[in-house]
Amino acid sequence: MPRRILLTCFALLALALAAPSARAQNAVPTASQFIDRLSQTAIEGLTSKDIDHDERKERFRKIFTEAFDVTTIGRFALGAPWRTASETDRAEYLKAFEDYIVASYATRFADYGGEKIVTVGSRRGDDNEAFVQSQFMRAQGAPVRVTWRVRPNADSWRIIDVIIEDVSMAITQRDDFSATVQRNGGRLSALIEALRAKTAPPGAAPAGRS
């Protein structure tokens, strides 16, 4: 019995000694490093001309769901209807929302023309959040000011808002979604249908208001 305790103690000691070095190797990145790595990963993984449309979409989905807090963004963007929605409706909506983002953005990496995200600094927000400021360098034209709002998550960060030239995408998305819900008699299903219509590949999309 004492022997087992002793062993346990040793084991714990070994762990305690090993842990800091392991942590140092795998240190929590700063918010800016997180964004730097994310843009590097995205450019390396998504811009190749050799991968097909579906492959690019799936790679984008993986990066997106890891780096973005899809549930928080989705909840915020839906607003009040979230409260009355059933668990099934919420799950269905979040899935449609994710597919819609993937469909809207993945293809943009296909015609990549050397754009770059250069982080220029970061500021602390409330609740340990950070705002990482960056310049989106375009092939031509002035750079665009993009701010990434990130929240600590496990040993890294997750994006909860992207602010382009002072326009919060979370707010813009919320206005867009709530207008669609309102104009369809407050039905969440109408928004889900609209998101699915946007997700369908071009050509397959039903003709209608865009």
Binding site: W82, D126, Q133, I160, I163, S168, A170
Partner: peptide, 19 residues
Amino acid sequence: PGSTPPSPRMTDGDLPGNS
């Protein structure tokens, strides 16, 4: 340009929940 741009409150209490 270096200041924090506007972004909404998004803590749990601000998001629509069950109650």
